[in-house]
Amino acid sequence: MSNKKDASKTKLFTASNIKCYCCGKMVPDEGFPVEIEGKKQLFCTKGCYNFSIEYKKFREGGKI
């Protein structure tokens, strides 16, 4: 994590309920947005987005 990020992200209000479309973890900042079926969905990271595709294939009987 860089030491040189500027602008504090301190939130004035309570934690939001924005959760990752794949795992459910709360997305603390802008996350990783992906358009799915015409709607913007937030993933916590790109890795979580990639995992969601692999996992879907696995549960549908495909091989990873």
């Binding site: 994590m1 030491n3 040189k4 990020k5 504090s8 992200k9 939130k11 603390p28």
Partner: peptide, 10 residues
């Protein structure tokens, strides 16, 4: 992770 992201490492 939340502490660092909300307060900002800087």
């Amino acid at each position: 992770e939340w502490c660092l992201k909300e307060i900002g490492i800087e």
